[in-house]
Structures are given as structure tokens and as C-alpha cells.
Write a protein that binds this DNA or RNA. Structure first.
Lengths: 207, 207
DNA sequence: TAGATTGTTAATCGATTAACAATC
DNA sequence: TAGATTGTTAATCGATTAACAATC
């Protein structure tokens, strides 16, 4: 879709730009230069200009960047102008927390279904959605166009779940199980909460 | 503490090594070479050896690495041989999910207190722990030696919470609010779940 | 126009990979 | 000992930063 491939480093800075620009907009800031952004965000000004120029020339020489239009471009680039349909597989602690996450709807993510394998959980209601049997997931995916599958199962069911989701046409996986799931046809974000906690205890121990 | 500084890239690979070595141990594998690890994990064999050698020579020429002892070294390096005392601030969806996270105790993390600002939440019990008023947090921190503070408050209270925690002597912050908190005296891991979701929709849109 | 700041090319820096001598 | 594989130095690659001409 895009000419040159954009590096992972750049991609992971995009949400930070997006968040910061949102804040500037809320504060009523109209224009900003790469130098000012640099001072506020701690990134190098050259890097900021390079990053934006991966996607096009959004600035104006001698002026800087218009906050509104830059924010609009970023939301386009990040794909935040669409509405995404989500299913959550695994209604344990994290699955439930995500199902109830209030910011989803306002950001364009709609939870269409929640699935679990455990008899005692199936049929319960979470945030107005009834937990279905994971055995019915393939059929559900046939009848509903789902964009993102959230994997909140235990480690041992994660890859299997990923397979079911992708076979059902789900093209993006958000994985919270402590394992790297793989899929040929889908984009994947492995969250690895425990890795982040390990890094924290590394820093705590070695500082 | 350590001679040369270890790069962020290396630090973030440590948990992946740790997890993989754990799996090898469970499968009963006794020894492994950097070449085998490379094939299994997808990292370059040179990189693997370089990474381990940031911390010392754990291998043996002509033999490879002993899984048990390498795993032991990694858990030392990551600081997973200690027990850490945790407080969770914010008993919303994510705070509750973390409070109930069953794997914490077996990994050496003990939730010592949960705090919230909302009247209707204070006094409730989560996983056997009574939610306390966040106003009592400073006193609690004086009376209990807490290692890690988990920030699960809304965005606007996150930095304030970080300040209270660090002033109370907490030396590590695990932040789930969608903002980068800052602290001079503490180590910080900003989790940014929504950033990870943004990256996923970026990939979905641009692929 | 003059001043400011971008877009872009070139230089630097650091991380990854390759190569190989050391050695178990 | 011979073979294998590490530990480590050197080469490569990519990402970050600096510089500056283009231009609003």
C-alpha cells in the first residue's frame, strides 16, 4: 500500500505523536514546529520531521505543522477513522476488563462477542454481552465480519484460538497470552504484560 | 552495578529468553546451543551469544549452554529470585484484573494493598483484599515496604499517583494509564495498552 | 523581502550480523 | 585428539542526528 516500508521504530512512535497532538488540540494549540514538539516530547527534531515525511509532507516551511490537520493525517495513518468489530476470547480477568473498557466505543472499537470454554462462565453477561461457548466461535465468525480478535485465553489455548480466529477471516490478533502466537494471514500484536513486569524488576534489581 | 550499560534492545529480549528457557526446561531439554536457540526463537545466533555475554560467559565451548544454569542466571539477572511487594492504585477494570491475576504469587509478586478514590469502591473486597481510600496511601507506604506501585488510575490522576508512590519510597512504577508518567527516583514501565491497539490497526490498515 | 522552518541529503552512531581464534 | 561451539573482534546494516538548500 505504501511505497517504502516504514520501520518498526517509526510505527511505534506514531501513537505517541497521536496522543501528544490530541493533547495539543485539547489545549487549543493551532500550530507547532518540529523544534517545539521535540522539546515537549523528547524526540529529536530531525527524527520527528523524518517520521512524518515517511507518510507525506504535512508541514509548511517557515510555519511548522497545523495541529488539526497533522492530527487528522495521523488518525488516517493509524486507521483510527474506521470502526473495528472485535471479539474477545477468554472471559477471565483480562478478558472481562477489556470487555468493560469504556474507552473502546469512543475510539471506534465495538465488542461484538465474548467467548469462553468454561461451562460456568458461558451464559453470563459482561457489559451487556452474553458470553458464548467458544465452540460456536467459527459459526459466529461466518455470520459476523470481525476485524480484531482479542486472545485472553490461557497460554496453552492461545495458538489454537489464533488459528480459529484467522480461519474465520479475522485479520488482526491482539494477544494477551504469555506466548507469541503466529498467523500467516493476520497482523499480530503480542502484548506480553508479564514481560513488561520482568523488565521492571530487571531495572529495579540493576539500578 | 554492572560494568557496561546494557542496551534497551537487549533488556527487552531477556524476558523472551527466560520464557523460552523455561519451556525447554519443562520439556526436559538439558543443553542447547546458540544455533538451536536461534532456529527456535528466530534471533540470530551471534546476537544470542552477544546478549548472554553482556552478563557473563554462561556457555561452554564445544558444548553450548546448560538449560538449567542458564535459566538460573536469567532469573537472577531479571531479579525474579526476590519477592516483590505491590500496591495497586485504581480498582477499575484493569486494577481489578491485575489484583486477581493468579500468576502473581507464583512469580514472586505479592499484592499488599489496593487503593481507590471512589467512595463506592472503598471497602469492597477484591481477591481477599479490602480496597482502601487512596488518601491513606501515604501512611500505608510509611508502614509497609512496597517495591512496585501499579498505576491503574484515569489519565489525569496518573502523574499525581506516581508522585505519591515515589514520595512513599516506592522505587518501581508499572503504569497502565495512557500517559507517560515521570519520576526521578523510580524505574518506570509505561504499558500503553492503547498504543499497542493503535499499532494493530495501523498494520491492519496498511497491509 | 527576511526569517523561520520544513523536506531531504549526508554524517554519525549504535545495533545486528559475520567471522574466527580460543577452548571445552 | 578432532569436532563443536563459545566468546569476542571486526564488518555490515539500519536508525538517529546533523546540516542545509528549498520555500512558505
Amino acid at each position: 500500500m505504501r511505497e517504502r516500508t516504514v520501520s518498526e521504530a517509526v510505527i511505534h512512535r506514531l501513537p505517541k505523536y497521536y496522543r501528544h497532538l490530541q493533547e495539543l488540540q485539547e489545549r487549543g494549540v493551532e500550530r507547532i514546529s518540529s523544534g517545539e514538539l521535540s522539546a515537549e516530547m523528547g524526540f529529536n527534531a530531525s527524527q520527528i520531521r523524518q517520521d512524518f515525511n515517511c507518510f507525506g509532507g504535512f508541514g509548511q516551511q517557515g510555519y511548522g505543522y497545523r495541529v488539526n490537520s497533522l492530527l487528522h493525517e495521523l488518525s488516517q495513518i493509524l486507521g483510527l477513522t474506521h470502526v473495528y468489530n472485535i471479539v474477545i476470547v477468554g472471559a477471565g480477568n483480562i478478558g472481562k476488563a477489556l470487555a468493560r473498557y469504556a474507552a473502546f466505543p469512543q475510539e471506534g472499537y465495538e465488542v461484538k462477542g465474548i467467548f469462553d470454554i468454561r461451562e460456568e462462565v458461558i451464559g453470563r453477561e459482561i457489559n451487556g454481552i452474553t458470553v458464548q461457548n467458544v465452540a460456536d466461535l467459527p459459526e459466529f465468525l461466518q455470520q459476523n465480519q470481525i476485524d480484531i480478535g482479542v486472545i485472553c485465553t490461557p497460554k496453552d489455548n492461545a495458538q489454537k484460538t489464533a488459528d480459529v480466529l484467522t480461519q474465520g477471516g479475522v485479520r488482526a490478533l491482539w494477544n494477551f497470552a504469555p506466548i507469541d502466537v503466529e498467523a500467516e494471514k493476520a497482523c499480530i500484536e503480542n502484548v506480553h504484560l508479564s514481560d513488561s513486569l520482568y523488565v521492571l524488576s530487571y531495572r529495579l534489581t540493576n539500578s
